[in-house]
């Protein structure tokens, strides 16, 4: 069989197939990706493999990235919007070792971006691929734990449960109490889980020039959004969807339109707000933007 990886008994890997996965596994994932693109928002089952990193740590994203990657790619990995969070570093190193691809922290230069919990601030462009790591791909899962049931609900296009949940939120809190992982409707058909991105990022899913692929390894599902797909957050006429973020400028670059992390900076509980997208923040600072907390 072509493309099998050998491991030496002493633990050193003798060689890898390109991007780690064997070719048969890649073909299986590639077929699932194509069906996912053909049926936007529908969760395609795939025989997720055991990866050398734990389930829940991006195995779905890693398998999707491995299946789409070519040697000429420039690969970027972010976790929480940052390139230097430990798991992002670990995944980037994995592909440097197993695929030999060039990596970058710059959104603009990347051709494949694997992400956990954020969509970059810089608008994506045609030719880019955004790969999401997805923990629970089923938007109805916390309303109905059984896969056998939720699959029927999707088949019947029965999203009453979700509307009831959102409506109960409004009745209780005056708002839809979902701050991240906000459910969306794709092309007026499937309700889709966008992975736990903050509500702030939800509008970026729609009409995006890039291909968006979602991989859930443990749950063995892939879903996808082709470019320029209609993606609408679920809401009510009298309670329209509203993207929100902390009402501050970035303390480092002064950006007022980026998603912010709240950082506790001293023992007295002093806080500053900084861009969660580290590349966005750095690029702004490099071009001379200054925030209040840099002095």
């Amino acid at each position: 069989m072509s493309g099998c990886m050998r491991q030496e008994p002493d633990g050193a890997r003798a060689d890898y197939n390109f991007a780690y996965l064997d070719e048969q596994t890649k073909r299986m994932i590639r077929r699932a990706i194509l069906k996912g693109l053909a049926i936007p928002g529908y969760q395609v089952p795939f025989a997720s493999r055991e990866m050398p990193m734990p389930y829940g740590w991006g195995t779905g994203g890693v398998q999707v990235s491995a299946a789409v990657m070519v040697p000429e790619d420039r690969f970027k990995v972010i976790d929480q919007g940052a390139d230097d969070t430990t798991n992002a570093v670990s995944i980037r190193a994995f592909f440097e070792r197993t695929a030999g691809v060039a990596t970058t922290t710059r959104t603009r230069e990347a051709s494949v971006i694997q992400t956990r919990h954020r969509i970059p601030e810089e608008p994506l462009r045609e030719g880019q691929i955004l790969v999401y790591q997805v923990p629970i791909p089923e938007p109805l899962r916390f309303l109905e734990p059984r896969e056998s049931e939720t699959r029927k609900l999707h088949a019947l296009e029965d999203y009453g449960l979700m509307h009831v949940k959102l409506y109960e939120d409004i009745a209780r809190h005056g708002h839809i109490a979902t701050a991240y992982d906000y459910p969306v409707r794709v092309e007026a058909r499937y309700v889709m889980d966008p992975s736990p991105i903050p509500k702030f990022d939800t509008p970026k899913l729609a009409d995006c020039p890039a291909i968006q692929l979602f991989g859930a390894g443990r749950e063995q599902r892939i879903h996808a959004l082709p470019p320029y797909t209609r993606v609408v957050p679920l809401d009510f006429e009298d309670h329209p969807f509203e993207a929100s973020k902390p009402d501050h400028p970035c303390g480092l670059c002064g950006a007022t339109d980026s998603y912010l992390d709240e950082v506790i900076v001293d023992d007295a509980g002093g806080r500053i707000f900084v861009c969660s997208d580290t590349d966005h923040c750095e690029a702004r600072r490099d071009s001379g933007h200054v925030g209040e907390d840099t002095a």
């Binding site: 390109f18 693109l37 299946a67 990657m69 291909i211």
Partner: peptide, 19 residues
């Protein structure tokens, strides 16, 4: 070069299906 050639071909197929 099966792994590399297939990777390139798939990108073309995926791009065609996505667009």
């Amino acid at each position: 070069d099966p792994a590399i050639d297939a990777a390139h071909a798939f990108r073309a197929v995926m791009d065609a299906m996505a667009r």
